[in-house]
Design a protein around this nucleic acid. Structure first.
Lengths: 216, 216
DNA sequence: TTGCACACGGGAATTCTTCCCAAGATCCCG
DNA sequence: CGGGATCTTGGGAAGAATTCCCGTGTGCAA
């Protein structure tokens, strides 16, 4: 059996050390190089042509998901494994949409990473166990958390909600009943798969609907 | 020179591997044990009596800052080094208030951790370089002043809330009653002058407690 | 010792959410 | 044109969450 060659991309040196040490426990996995930034990663991958790229989502400059997209547009078929601390389905969905072949959380068992690298190198998809469960409990990825699933009015109310407007303010602003707004809110939460208001705000941020410097 | 004994507490196995590998580059540092949870940490520290405890802020069950407080109430003088990915002053302040002797971010140079462990073991305080700089720029913009009105426990719950955790999850994680969490939430909202959950998240974002690429 | 702040939680009233239902509007498609 | 799908609008009622007020216990400091 041929060695599986791997490139690591993470901005935290400590975490890279951990990756490397873990992966090298398996004598069939060989870590070719480590990268620290999005640019590093892109260059290294083109240069070294590893079997698998293991990449964090949070990178300086560009998200790992964006890097994934760029790498794949240059090298279709490159196997990329996202190794992230985000246990949020939003990120999982985005990762797979971008073409990643696997998603493992940092809180997964160490062996899971090795297993994931193996699976991905064979061309299979890998989703860490906790994530798979959380998908099951959240009605598959078609539920989307995608803002596109919101109707026009729903989006309008969604937007007001995440700005911190109260239901009363919204009903007054839109000249509709409080009840209607409350019902919209329920629908929006369900469509976005959010149980708390805070989760909705996060989704809004993730989709650039609002930003931290957005006062309005 | 006597070896410096260290205990690592972090919930991510990969990160612990990295810590250990980094610290053991220095032949005078000896890692006695690793802990994964708040409980682990507390027990290990009482048991092994290490010179220095290196601890993450984000732990399952209880924040590293809370653990710090508890350890110190049991073993005053225990040297604790917080090693966190939060680059925000709010956390730095909380950590030192709780009695931590050092604060290093995960994005710091690997050598900084070793240096920090050394300094702290000698009884000195250590603050990583990026943090020291951001103190300078932060003291002017007094952001974070609102959050100072929150008590330690309130802040902890606030942090969990804005991550989108439900009241039930929080009460389970902290081993306190749902009612207590609900009451805390009410107090927090009142103290921060927020009427909706979304407004609280906005405050959290504005103060850098969370960001759009931050989870856990 | 007294006072104060904090962590914790029960009870009850109130308010919010959810779920279910329905009417009217609109628009597209065969 | 009629039928169907979708959207907007809201009521009713049960259930869940929030608030407000009350209390306990603990630790700390004057």
């Amino acid at each position: 059996m041929q060695d599986i060659t791997v490139i690591l991309i993470d901005d935290h040196a400590v975490v890279r050390e951990g990756y490397r040490r873990l992966l090298e426990r398996d004598s069939h996995i060989q870590v070719l190089a480590e990268g620290e930034t999005a640019g590093d990663g892109y260059r290294l991958v083109c240069d070294k042509q590893p079997d698998v790229v293991v990449m964090d989502i949070t990178l300086p400059g560009m998200s790992g998901i964006e890097v994934t997209r760029r790498i794949l547009s240059k090298i279709p078929g490159q196997k990329i494994l996202i190794f992230s601390m985000h246990e949020d389905m939003v990120f999982v969905n985005r990762a797979f949409q971008a073409g990643a072949k696997g998603y493992v959380t940092k809180s997964a068992a160490p062996e899971a990473l090795i297993e994931a690298v193996r699976q991905v190198s064979l061309g299979k998809l890998y989703l860490s166990h906790e994530m798979a469960q959380s998908i099951a409990s959240q009605t598959i990825s078609d539920s989307g958390k995608d803002l596109d699933s919101l109707s026009g009015r729903e989006f309008e109310i969604f937007h007001l909600l995440v700005q911190g407007k109260t239901l009363n303010e919204i009903s007054a602003a839109l000249h509709i009943s409080y009840k209607t707004v409350a019902n919209y809110q329920s629908n929006i939460r369900q469509k976005l798969g959010a149980t708390t208001a805070a989760q909705i705000v996060r989704i809004a941020i993730d989709h650039g609907v609002i930003s931290s410097v957005d006062k309005s």
